[in-house]
Design a binder for these strands. Structure first.
Lengths: 215, 215
DNA sequence: TCTTATGAGCGAACCATTTCGTACATTGCT
DNA sequence: AGCAATGTACGAAATGGTTCGCTCATAAGA
């Protein structure tokens, strides 16, 4: 990618790079907000420093832009993993950490959740082409497998829990209260966006997972 | 509603009624497939016995049709509830029944799951106007509250589990493996659509809930 | 019974707008 | 000059929604 000739050299990104990122930011918000078919590239272009012409210039079109957005969102998750999949001494503490971090990440990145929701509406039409997702999932599962194994040796955890099932359970619990906040909680007064309710939910999720794994 | 003069009398619905239902069926499939913004009225009309004109005649427009579809889907869930929220003698058996039935319903009605996903993408813009959802949720929570209370009395269940949290946990686990089947399971070989994997997941979900509630 | 008024049900063509994408001209740097 | 970057304006197709007019069953009145 071309660089400016400014004295900062390679450390400084070009204007073009900044434009790309700006477009990606706006597009992420827009796609997360309305989905692929609901988003309008004219609208994205307007909110951008750049023009519609530039979107086509850089990303080729709506689909290309969408894929770039999805890819970057998944990349961010992987970076989060890298920070949080450290090994702890105690299996139960490690498990709590994974669950808590996953819960927090989903809550702090609803746009990621919404992109994934949309991708599922599209039956995963694009997610397959994004490199790194397989590895990401595999890595998480392997991490959980390790925790479970150490927990069993430790006699903290019971035997027979499948790490894939565990991964799925954790994901489901962390995903749902973000993805379904608008349809859930009709009928009983509980605003899932209140910090108090959120904290309680967080505790519950950790508790559910722990109760399941503990012997 | 007008009836035909056919001998069957009140038992037989009119052609108009049949047309409405036919439109609703097709629209349900279409909205579940592509979401509100992704669905095309012309396409719905084509797959229908009726014409586009009739869709506007009966439902007023795209939004009206969407709302009618959503409403009917939720009505169907309530009917399912009515069948399954019977009281059992043993709290733990009752709990297993609720979880199992919920799991099965979601799996057998992916179109319902997809409609709810889409409604959440739309930030619940229409779900609030549909009567009966509040009551539905309230009824489920009250049922769970009863089970939990009896289980505590019974000394089968531990104290302090909030029925709303329980409802949310069950919903999340049953919803997720349908809603996120396309983005989950990249990286490890597990086809969630295989009967075997599904049965295993079902068992896991019941197990998770039971482990959490049991003292 | 015969006639007519009424309104639900319906088809086909049509309209206005939106929306994705592109052609072309222009700027500015090297 | 020559190439990358970019703004403007436009085209073609898709899309939500409407207009016009026709059929037919039934109810009301003579």
């Amino acid at each position: 990618m071309a660089r400016t000739s400014s004295p900062e050299g390679a450390l400084r990104t070009t204007d073009a790079e900044e434009t790309r990122l700006n477009i990606l930011d706006v597009a992420t918000a827009e796609f997360a907000d309305k989905g692929l078919s609901g988003a309008r590239i004219d609208e994205i272009a307007e909110r951008t420093n750049a023009s519609k012409r530039m979107i086509y210039y850089y990303f080729g079109g709506k689909e290309g832009l969408y894929r770039a957005v999805l890819e970057r969102a998944y990349t961010a998750v992987r970076e989060m993993d890298a920070d949080n999949l450290r090994d702890h001494l105690e299996p139960d503490a490690a498990l709590r950490d994974v669950v808590g971090a996953t819960f927090d990440y989903h809550n702090q990145h609803p746009e990621f959740v919404r992109l994934v929701m949309n991708e599922n509406i599209l039956r995963g039409a694009h997610v397959g082409e994004i490199p790194g997702i397989r590895e990401r999932n595999r890595k998480v599962v392997e991490h959980l497998r390790g925790i479970l194994a150490r927990g069993v040796t430790n006699r903290q955890f019971r035997e027979g829990i499948d790490p894939v099932e565990l991964h799925m359970t954790i994901s489901a619990l962390c995903f749902y209260n973000v993805s379904n906040r608008y349809t859930f909680s009709y009928g009983f007064e509980r605003d899932m966006s209140s910090p108090k309710a959120l904290a309680r939910r967080r505790m519950s999720v950790i508790d559910v997972i722990e109760s399941w794994c503990r012997r």
